[in-house]
Design a protein around this nucleic acid. Structure first.
Lengths: 232, 232
DNA sequence: CGTCACTTCTTTGTTGACAATCTTGCGCGA
DNA sequence: TCGCGCAAGATTGTCAACAAAGAAGTGACG
């Protein structure tokens, strides 16, 4: 059962120059955490992870170390690792950082977008509108991710891209909840359309403003949760 | 000679909950890299580091792993670690990210500044003006760091703070060069004063704009270097 | 009945040896 | 002389056993 997995992981190890099993363990464990399989605060006992992933303890520890660097896991000396808890206050901070970073990326996307990419943006916008009109919220959420991802691709800003990726991962659980709040799609759809329009018209300043307003409205929601006592 | 060092590192290990020698090795190695003791591209051979820091190989590896996460070191499988080279293009990207992050921090500082902190800002501004007038560029550079640090303290934005710290570290060498460019202080002094004024008057939007203009002018300098072929 | 010290067990941290890989220097032949 | 393979050395990657720390259970004492 582990033969094929070993082969692929070895293959990738050759290509990327990473520890053969460490990378596999890290990726699988990250996926497990993001999918909610391990809850925040839950202890990650090395022996259990060894059994689950079939990887040596050495590589498990390296993987945990990596995820600690990504902010998904917290390691306490002699006390092991646990899934990091992220408070609502910290969620707001992270989203604020995402706001300015994605704003930067949107501006650069507006400077670099090609005609082909512009029509791709338009298409996503169209699909989003349809999804909202027909109440397909899950599909809308997927399109949302695809839109932000495409904008990041267009911008080609590796540094911002990497940071946004790790920040988004830390909020994976919260974002999921947010997109399901009542009225959210009706609020965010026009925001998304403004972002698309600004990038398509190659207007960096307006693209940045539109992106920031969009994420600022997410922060507003988070702040309101803070007051009504909606705990993480 | 290593007795006292071991004592302090053990002490800190207890307090922070980190590996006793790993943290020491990481900090010392980072300092060595930032001070230019190891040049970009230079190989960091584990055996040498063991001898230099008097730390076990295990902890040296952990330290290298950490610094890799900070972007100071690049690790290639079976080929060891080397000081990461940062191209001019990447320097620009990193500075762009710093621009938006420090802008965010400046805005939040304007919202939270106390009267005592406001006068401290004023004082730094005064000292900066004096330093420029008397041509003390080294002192001006120090005050520059102190100003940005104070703003970050006032803002109290842990997430942005941490990211800015790692980004600044990656550029440590370049920043040093930049502050010595002819005419730089005359350009940046009024920018700094505008930042101080905006924060003191508790105007977040203007504080953010001023900070971004300040760092944008750094990016302009970098872009000009890019064209004249001023290599990293 | 609660609490404190002690013991036991679980879990993590560290080390040294060994294996895999890369690099370097050498010799051979064209 | 130059290029090519091969072997020796250097360097990193991995593992399994051991040491140390923390957590949990136990029993005696107030």
């Amino acid at each position: 059962m582990s033969a094929e997995k070993n082969l692929t992981s070895v293959r990738r190890a050759r290509d990327t120059g990473e520890g053969k099993d460490k990378a596999a363990a890290r990726d699988e464990l990250r996926t497990a955490i993001l999918s909610g399989e391990y809850m925040p605060g839950e202890r990650l006992v090395e022996a259990q992870l060894i059994e689950r992933f079939g990887v040596s303890r050495f590589n498990i520890r390296l993987a945990l170390q990596d995820l600690s660097g990504e902010g998904l896991v917290e390691i306490q000396r002699n006390r092991g690792a646990q899934v990091r808890k992220i408070s609502l206050a910290e969620t707001i901070e992270i989203t604020q950082v995402r706001m300015v970073l994605e704003g930067l990326v949107a501006a650069q996307a507006a400077e670099r977008v090609t005609d082909a990419q512009a029509s791709e943006l338009d298409e996503i916008g169209l699909l989003m509108r349809r999804a909202v009109e027909s109440g397909e919220f899950r599909r809308y959420s997927d399109l949302n991710q695809r839109l932000h991802g495409l904008i990041r691709t267009i911008a080609g800003h590796a540094t911002a891209d990497r940071l946004i990726g790790t920040l988004r991962a830390q909020l994976a659980r919260h974002q999921f909840m947010l997109s399901l709040l009542p009225g959210r799609p009706q609020t965010s759809l026009p925001q998304h359309e403004r972002i698309i329009t600004a990038i398509r018209e190659r207007d960096p300043a307006r693209a940045e403003t539109a992106m920031r307003e969009h994420i600022a409205s997410v922060i507003e929601v988070l702040r309101s949760l803070e007051e009504t006592g909606g705990h993480p």
